[in-house]
Design a binder for these strands. Structure first.
Lengths: 246, 246
DNA sequence: GCCCCTCCGTGATTGCAATCACATCCTTAT
DNA sequence: ATAAGGATGTGATTGCAATCACGGAGGGGC
């Protein structure tokens, strides 16, 4: 894993131009937001990079990764499996998200598998460098706590939603979430690029694939949304959707 | 809230005897584990203390507490409510657990209410003091990350379990969890003091109260457990229960 | 162009847990 | 002790989503 040669990321133009910043893998990552450019470059120089194709496994359940992985482009899913092979998707990560910090800092095995949902790029920061970084910048610890807090909010929402009976509100909630991450405003509504297939959606909210189809069909009949191809959904009435999601 | 006068907690015997350590509210709290005794005393001197009766609300959903609360004895539940008034319990906290750190560090409103399940004691550490503490001891930040990691594992488990169809395994999982926190080994099994009523259990795992009764009855018929009064359950066959929970 | 394979929608059936209704037990206050 | 109110067990019924089964659509490779 992550065995391809790391491209040097230091800014070759001798200045910190926008162009080079954009190519810097540590740039735009929330947990590194407090670092200065030269620090970003220093860290970037220590990372390994690798691209993954759709469907490739990045991290296996139960493994002991010795790196923090930072998602630099594309999106991945993090999922757990039950004994009888059913998948429960816990998170959909996209650019700027990270994973593996628990395993690295506290030597716990990974409790979920991470799989690419589309072609994506990751950068890996290894244990020693990450710990050094944390020691030098206590601020990063705070930012990690903050990010974990958001992630917990998300899970708390999931648990709450799954405890409720109404399937519709769960569908609504997940559509809103994906709209926030992958949606683009248009004249006639918000067009959402769906990183998950219908089956993926089903495994994300914990219901059957067929039920997802049926409920989405109902929402479409009501004029709330409209399917656009297989991988896009247009939200026509955001307000109604928000009300549905509660 | 927390308006009763704080008792001074510094060690009056002039030495760090076991007796006084036991009374020190900061002693035995995991996130403070790396602090020396004099630091523990210093923090303890800055805390406010208050006791709560069963059923009392400690923290309301949506409020902006400016303290971290550390549970010093007893147990509490953290729960969210749906629009139609249904309760979903997210956590059962007991001695040594803390809450409120997200609200305090990042000024986010509390997303769950916290209510006493039995008489309990809390100590409150206010914003300024907590931030100072974090700044002085970066180690505490790491310990918070660690604890949040465990809490996330718990939620990830909950989501996974709720995504699975089998009610039995969810019941089994929650019994195991409570056994770990409130269980005592005996000759004939593990006796678990149940902090939650049957309705509480139901709201914890997201199913109906009646179903909890029925499923527990089934487990009792199978000889796996035995109800002892209303507030205790004896686990007679731990192995079978673990298998059930997966 | 064609085939193959995966993803997706839809109908019919079934099963399981929510809900409703009520009797009983337990706790607690007076 | 006793009454009152809440918590709990249990049966009957119902509703909703899982499952099963299949046809169709779309997309990628050759």
């Amino acid at each position: 894993m992550a065995s391809s040669a790391p491209a040097s990321r230091s800014c070759s133009c001798g200045q910190h131009c926008a162009h080079c910043l954009e190519k810097l893998c540590t740039h735009g990552i929330p947990i590194f937001a407090s670092l200065a450019v030269d620090q970003l470059e220093k860290i970037a120089g220590k990372t390994l990079h690798r691209s993954y194709e759709k469907g490739e496994t990045i991290l296996e359940e139960g493994s002991h990764p010795d790196y923090v992985a930072i998602l630099n482009g594309g999106s991945v899913k993090a999922s757990r499996f039950t004994a009888d092979g059913r998948e429960q998707i816990l998170y959909v990560f996209s650019e700027g998200d990270f994973f593996g910090e628990q395993n690295l800092l506290f030597d716990r095995p990974a409790v979920y598998a991470v799989t690419a949902l589309e072609p994506c790029r990751l950068c890996f920061l290894y244990k020693k460098d990450f710990q050094q970084l944390l020691a030098d910048n206590p601020d990063i610890g705070l930012r990690i706590i903050s990010e974990l807090g958001w992630r917990m909010s998300h899970l708390e929402n999931s648990v709450r939603n799954m405890g409720v009976r109404s399937l519709e509100s769960r569908i609504g909630a997940v559509l809103l979430e994906l709209a926030g991450k992958y949606g683009a405003k248009q004249d006639d509504g918000t067009l959402v690029r769906m990183p998950l297939s219908r089956e993926g959606l089903a495994n994300y909210i914990g219901i059957a694939r067929e039920t997802v189809s049926r409920k989405l069909g109902m929402l479409e009949d009501e004029g709330m949304i409209r399917s656009v191809g297989a991988r896009h959904i247009l939200i026509r009435d955001m307000k109604a959707l928000e009300e549905l999601a509660g």
